[in-house]
Amino acid sequence: MAYSDALWQEAKKKCRLNNEDIKIAKELGLNPKSLIKNIPNKNQQWKAPVSVWIREIQEERQRKSLLKQKRKESDKTEV
């Protein structure tokens, strides 16, 4: 489902994101509603801001992708 630009703009404003954060969120397959839902409130001091959360997800996926790629390369050399 494609989300309207209005929803993305609302998420950008409420979550205090920049254009780069929105671009990364879209690439990760996140939607504006999930971004808004993950805004930490005052009782959730442990929760990272949405922009940090997006970057952490991106780094984790890149790390996993790199590990998978290394595993494939090592499997090729063993055969």
Rank of each mutant, 00 (worst) to 15 (best):
K23G: 08
K47P: 00
N43G: 09
L28S: 04
I39E: 01
E10M: 13
K12C: 08
V79Q: 11
N43S: 12
K42R: 11
S34T: 12
E73N: 14
S74P: 02
G29S: 05
I39T: 06
E56H: 14
L7M: 12
K68M: 08
N38P: 02
T77W: 11
P49Q: 08
A6I: 14
R71V: 06
W53P: 01
Q9L: 12
W8F: 05
S51A: 12
N31G: 09
N43T: 11
A2N: 15
K70Q: 15
K64P: 00
L35Q: 01
R71L: 13
Q69M: 12
K13M: 07
C15K: 02
Q44V: 02
I57H: 01
E20S: 13
I39W: 00
V52L: 13
I57M: 07
I54Q: 07
K68E: 14
E20N: 12
R16Q: 15
G29H: 04
S51W: 11
V50D: 03
G29M: 05
V79I: 15
W8L: 06
V50G: 02
K72M: 14
N43R: 11
P49A: 10
K42L: 11
K76T: 10
K70D: 11
D75L: 15
Y3T: 02
Q62C: 06
L67W: 08
I22F: 00
L67N: 08
W53C: 06
R71Q: 13
P32Q: 05
Q58T: 05
Q45P: 04
K64Y: 03
W46P: 00
A2M: 10
I36G: 01
A11G: 01
A48Q: 10
A25L: 04
S74W: 14
Q44I: 01
L35Y: 00
D21Q: 04
K72A: 12
K72I: 13
C15A: 07
I39Q: 04
K47F: 00
E59S: 09
